[in-house]
Structure formats: structure tokens, C-alpha cells
């Protein structure tokens, strides 16, 4: 079993710029993944509106019946979220690590256009490595 089912990165206007699937069900339809990403973007924004206390920065963890969704929003509004098995620990650190990879291999890539889909080979390689590492440590526990 995989600890992580999928990873999404959405830009500050809710467009999906990166999607990767690690589950057994195979890749979701492209249109569906785009729609899910923008739906999440708006749900995240609405959750801030409904906060009873000032200073809400949106949903961090959504616990569904069959999965957990962990979300990390960077200061510039780019959102990273992973869909994982229920109760998976340490996802905040993984998301921060993926953010680091994003800054190193995507933002510093001179050919990358901001807010556009990510097509960077180095990012893919390093991401696969850290997901693998995370999975190994998960299995080790």
C-alpha cells in the first residue's frame, strides 16, 4: 500500500500546474484533476471566510472516510496538497520539503514561466526520490 495517493500543486489563481499519481487506481482524467484543483482552491478560500477568529489561512487537513488531504500554502499563494492514507503522519514536513524542491528546481529554472504547468526534469527526479524516501520510512515504521 502506498502512503501517498497523489500530489497536486496549484498556482495562486487555482490552476493546476502539477499533478502526480502514486496510487493503484491509475491517473485521473485530466479534466477531472483540473476541476478538482480549482474546486479545492475555492473551498480553501471559503474556509477562511467562515473562520470564527481573525487570521485564518485556510484548510490544512481534511479528514475524509478513505483518505487524508494535507495542504500547504506558500506565502505567494501556491498551494501544495497531498492525498494520503488516513492517519499518515509527518505530511507537513513532506510538503515543506516538496516546496523546497519547487523553489530549487522550478523557480530557479530560467526556462520556467511563472504560474504555468511544471515541466522540469530535475524536479521530477528529486521529487520521485523524496517520495520514495518517505515511503521507505513509512514502511520501516
Amino acid at each position: 500500500m502506498a502512503a501517498i495517493y497523489s500530489l497536486y500543486i496549484i498556482n495562486k489563481s487555482g490552476g493546476l500546474i502539477f499533478y502526480k499519481d502514486y496510487g493503484l487506481q491509475g491517473r485521473m482524467d485530466t479534466n477531472d484533476s483540473l476541476r478538482l484543483a480549482s474546486l479545492w482552491h475555492s473551498m480553501h478560500a471559503i474556509s477562511q471566510q467562515l473562520s470564527p477568529i481573525l487570521g485564518c489561512s485556510g484548510i490544512e487537513l481534511l479528514e475524509a472516510d478513505t483518505f487524508d488531504l494535507h495542504c500547504f500554502q506558500s506565502l505567494t499563494g501556491t498551494k501544495f496538497f497531498v492525498v494520503s492514507e488516513p492517519g499518515t503522519q509527518n505530511m507537513e514536513n513532506l510538503l515543506k520539503h516538496i516546496y523546497e524542491l519547487y523553489t530549487d528546481y522550478v523557480l530557479k529554472n530560467p526556462f520556467y514561466e511563472m504560474e504555468m504547468p511544471i515541466r522540469c526534469e530535475l524536479f521530477d527526479i528529486n521529487l520521485a526520490q523524496s517520495i520514495q524516501k518517505d515511503r521507505v520510512s513509512y514502511l520501516g515504521r
Binding site: S6, Q25, S47, S51, P52, C56, S57, V83
Partner: peptide
């Protein structure tokens, strides 16, 4: 992620049908 056939996004579902959620958390 537990089922492959889920229909389209936003199809009406009866209570108890499909995967639901029980909580979410923000910083506040």
C-alpha cells in the same frame, strides 16, 4: 482513492453514498 468508478464530479449523491468526510482543520 479506494474506488476507480466514481462518476463525474458533482453528481448528486444520497447521504451515505460515496466517500464523505468527518472533519477539517485550519490554523484557527
Amino acid at each position: 482513492p479506494s474506488s476507480a468508478e466514481k462518476g463525474n464530479l458533482g453528481v448528486p449523491q444520497l447521504p451515505g453514498q460515496g466517500c464523505s468526510f468527518h472533519s477539517f482543520r485550519t490554523n484557527t
